[in-house]
Design a protein around this nucleic acid. Structure first.
Length: 414
RNA sequence: GUGGCUGUAGCUCAACUGGCUAGAGCAUCCGGUUGUGGCCCGGAAGGUUGCGGGUUCAAGCCCCGUCAGCCACCCCA
């Protein structure tokens, strides 16, 4: 028997329904905020991610599904959505098509990490990219958008928001120089020693050496970055969004500037980030497009699913009508009734007319049907069907049109 | 990627220091007289103990490998 590949998973009912509910809620919210869907390829050139996500990031260095196709092209399964979105933006000249570039995507991403609960090699991300708006209100807008989706899913109080500012290129350059000399004086772990030259800001996020950074001053933002950051915080406060400022929040992708943020679940698991994002003012230009300061985030759908399950997800009320036959003689008639109900938009099902009535009634019950319609010789002859409410066992006889009308109008009283 | 724990029926688990045809609950299926589900009762089905090798008279249990899951780290969604 050939089994699943490590780190990949089957999503089965009823869990698959939770995915659907999250996607549906996200789509409805995106519509309110005037974000449009963009659907992108799963496969891109490997170099796209090297250039955008960053050569020195863990994502590119050790987590990418990289391969050669039959024509020796070096390709990769996408590990995140932003590079593809930016590529599509530039390649399709979207900057010339309208002046609002608010996109969302829903898609699978791939990272070859060691699997763990809530950490899979293929996972689903829902993300947004707001391209070309440098305003702190764009940052605030997408943070509130994300918060709003999670609140609609009734996940209030199950997550916290952390924000930070990494500054622009100018203030970051100054800060890097400052901390590199400070960090070199310290006795750091192996990883950190390598990071000092490649990505010194990342060192500050190290959990091993955390205690040694007490004397490292936080980044000093330039006037513009500071104003941006303050406006964002004011906008969040003014709209009752609770957040924590985390000066050590750095994030593992190279293109971020100014605002970065993470939504974390309040669990003990180390897989606690349910969404993360930030501003990337230089990326579009770096990738060959016109200068377009942008901001975005991505949400890990599996992690939101696990939050929904942990708080006790309840399925929607089941309005199912289940049709059962006394014997196989009524099969044709029953099947016709079923299709009349379905054509009227009523959720209807049946199991096997060959089975005993008892067995079919058990099927109705295990499908948590609300009503059973029982059809025997009498019902077929008189066209008056027996309808039974399964919650209390009350039943009576009615014509099919009457049943349909009463169910549709919510007037079915037995 | 590093270190560790685990793997018995669909699910949750049991099987003394290696010892008879590997058990139970739940779930499933059938039945409990004439056309009625849930509760209850009776019965049935379901396992090459993840897979492969080794040690032994004998392996679910010990050893090696492998696959998978989980935990911590790393990192992130």
């Amino acid at each position: 028997m050939i089994q699943r590949v490590r780190g990949f998973k089957d999503v089965l009912p009823p869990e698959s329904d939770i995915f659907y509910q999250i996607e549906k809620t996200a789509r409805e919210t995106f519509e309110t905020y005037n974000f449009k869907e963009i659907r992108l390829p799963t496969v891109e050139y490997f170099d796209l991610f090297v250039k955008s996500t960053g050569e020195e990031t863990d994502i590119v260095k050790k987590e990418m599904y990289k391969f050669e196709d039959n024509s020796k092209r070096v390709l990769a399964l996408r590990p995140e959505g932003t590079p593809g979105t930016v590529r599509a933006f530039i390649e399709n000249n979207l900057n010339l098509k309208g002046n609002s570039h608010k996109y969302f995507y829903i898609g699978n991403m791939f990272r070859a990490e060691r699997p763990q609960a809530q950490r899979y090699r293929e996972f689903e991300q829902i993300g947004v990219e707001y391209i070309g708006n440098p305003s702190p209100y764009a940052d605030a807008e997408i943070i509130i958008l994300l918060d709003s989706i999670l609140k609609k899913l009734n996940l209030n109080n199950l997550y916290r928001i952390e924000i930070n500012s990494l500054g622009c290129q100018a203030c970051r350059k100054k800060y890097k120089e400052l901390i590199v000399s400070e960090l070199k004086k310290l006795d750091l772990c192996q990883d950190c020693n390598q990071r000092i030259s490649k990505n010194p800001l990342r060192v500050l996020d190290c959990k091993i050496d955390q205690d040694k950074f007490k004397n490292i001053p936080p980044i000093e933002l330039c006037d513009e970055c500071l104003t941006h950051h303050n406006l964002l915080k004011e906008a969040l406060n003014a709209n009752n969004i609770t957040f924590i400022e985390n000066k050590l929040l750095v994030r593992g992708i190279d293109y971020y500037t100014k605002t970065v943020f993470e939504f974390k679940m309040s669990s003990q698991s180390s897989q606690d980030a349910i969404a993360g994002g930030g501003r990337y003012d230089n990326l579009v230009k770096l990738m060959g497009g016109v200068n377009s300061p942008s901001v975005g985030w991505a949400m890990g759908v599996e992690r939101v699913v696990s939050l929904m399950i942990s708080k006790g997800y309840k399925e929607n009320d089941n309005n199912l009508v289940f049709v059962v036959s006394l014997s196989s003689k009524q099969s044709k008639f029953c099947f016709k009734i079923i299709n009349l109900l379905r054509n009227a938009g009523i959720k209807t099902d049946f199991s096997n007319f060959e089975n005993s009535l008892k067995s079919q009634m058990r099927d109705a019950n295990s499908n948590s049907a609300r009503y059973a319609i029982i059809i025997g010789e009498d019902e077929e002859k008189t066209s008056k069907l027996t309808i039974k409410r399964l919650s209390d066992g009350k039943q009576q006889k009615m014509e099919i049109n009457e049943i349909i009308n009463k169910i549709k109008n919510g007037e079915l009283i037995l």
